[in-house]
Amino acid sequence: MMDAFDRFGLLINDRVVRTPVAIASMAGIVDADYVLERAEHIGLAFIGGYSIDRPTMDAAQSVASSGDRREFICDDPVTELQAQNAKMEKSDVVLGVNLRGSSPEAFRVIAQALGSAIVYEIDAHCRQPEMIAAGCGEYYLKNTEKLLTVVRELKNEGVTVSVKIRAGVANDDRALAKKLWGAGADILHVDLMDFGTAKLRQIRNSCPLMLIANNSINTFERMKDMLSHGADIISLARQSDSRTLAGLDAAITRYADEDGWYNAPKQLCRGGDIRSLTFCCMPVKECPLIPTLARINLPREDYIRMKMEGVKGTPLDDGKQTCFGSLAWCCKTSSPCMFRNMTLKQVGLSNKEYMRLKRDLSDTIMGRVFHDVSTDKRS
C-alpha cells in the first residue's frame, strides 16, 4: 500500500486510499456486497443511503412503496450497519456510510455504535420529497445551521465527517463549503449536476477540505478534468460497473506514475485553482496572478517569501538559468520551456520528481492561504 501512498498521497482515517476512484451511495443498491464485488478497482466507497431515525425510516418506506425507487429498509439501523461494517473489515477499501437522519442525536447514536474506523457521510443530497419533508437530504441545504450542527455533533464523537451535497441548491456553495470546513467537516462530496469544473474550482478556492467530485465522471478525460480543477477523488454511482472502474483506476495509476502529480491543477492563467500558485512566476506583470493574490489577501512580498522559503534546501531552489533564478517560479512540465528543461537536466531531476516537488510546494501554499490568511472572497 505504500506504493499507492507514494503515488497519490491519499489518507483517510490513517488508511491509504489506494486509488482516487470511489463508489458513491445509491439507496437500495450500494451495500457491502456491491462494494466487495468491485473492491479491486476502488479506494473508497460509501454504502447507503441508510435511514437512521423514525422520520427518515418512514420516508424510506413511503419511497419504496411507490415502486419507482429502491431503498434499504430496516427497523434496526445500528445492527444493519454493524453487519455491513463487519463484511468490509478485511477489505482494503476505505468505508464510508451515507446516512439519512433528521436530528444530530440520530447521527451520534450511529457513530457511538460503529466507532471511528469509518467515514460518516451526512446525506444533504437526496431530493425525494418524502426525505426532504422528513428533514434530511436537500432540506439541510436550505437549513444550513441544522446541517452545521450535525457536523459539529459528529465531530464531537471523534470521527471523520463527509458531507454529500448537490451543487446549486444552497444559496452559495462557496459560502457553504467555508462553513462546513469551519464546523469541522473533513470531506466534501459534491454532485456537480450540470455545473462542471467552474463550480468545482470555486469550491476548491473556498476551503482546504478533501473534495470528491461526482456526476457522470465515467471517462478518463472527464476524470482528469475534475482532478485538474480541484478534486482529490472522483466518485461514480450509476456507472460504477467493474469495467468502468477498472479503466479509470488503470488510467489514473498510469498517469500518476508518468507525471508524478495525479491531480496537478491547470496553470492559473489557464483557469487553474489556488493550488496552481505553485506554477506561477514572480508577480511582475499584469496576469491572473495579481488579482488572485489580491482576492486571497496575500501581499506580493509574502507570496515571494513563501515560495522561496518553501523550496529552500530542495532541488527547486536551483535554477539560476531560469527566468527568475529558481525552479520555484517555473511552470508545469506540460508547458514547453527550454530553460526549465535545461536546469532539470543539469540538476538531475526528472519531470516526475519535479512535479512531485511542485505538489509539496503547493501543499505549503495551501496551508498558508487557508490557515494563515484571512479572507472572505475567493472565486
Rank of each mutant, 00 (worst) to 15 (best):
Y120V: 01
T333K: 07
A175M: 07
A64W: 04
H125P: 00
S51C: 09
S235H: 09
S334D: 15
S334T: 15
R204M: 00
I217A: 01
A39Y: 05
V94K: 01
K90G: 03
E37F: 03
A246P: 06
A328F: 02
A27P: 02
L289E: 12
S216A: 15
V78Y: 03
S66E: 13
E138Q: 13
C323H: 06
G313H: 06
D241W: 00
I110R: 02
G182C: 06
G196S: 11
W261Y: 13
P265I: 08
F46C: 03
T343S: 11
A213R: 01
I23A: 02
G67Y: 11
A32S: 14
G313W: 04
E258K: 13
I274V: 11
M57Y: 05
E221T: 14
A111Y: 04
I304G: 05
D302N: 14
L245V: 13
D186P: 03
M2I: 14
Y255I: 03
F195H: 09
C287D: 15
Q202C: 04
L293W: 09
I47Q: 07
M338F: 10
L154T: 09
A64Y: 06
V78I: 14
L114T: 03
G49L: 02
E138R: 10
H229E: 12
S235W: 06
V17G: 12
G67N: 08
M226F: 00
N13R: 13
S65W: 04
S235D: 09
P291A: 10
S51K: 03
R38D: 08
A39V: 07
A4D: 15
T79Y: 09
L289D: 13
L236M: 15
V163H: 11
H229K: 11
R222T: 07
A22G: 07
D31S: 04
M193K: 12
V30H: 01
C331S: 08
H125L: 07
D68F: 06
C337F: 11
V369R: 05
K312T: 11
M131E: 09
N214L: 06
S235R: 07
E105C: 01
I42Q: 05
M342A: 15
L227F: 12
E71T: 02
S102G: 01
I12P: 02
T314L: 11
S362R: 01
T333N: 11
S335V: 14
D58P: 01
D3N: 15
R54N: 12
G28R: 12
Y139C: 07
S103F: 01
C331G: 06
C331N: 08
R127P: 08
P283W: 11
I217P: 00
I217D: 01
D318N: 10
V16G: 12
F8P: 15
M210C: 05
T253S: 10
T244K: 08
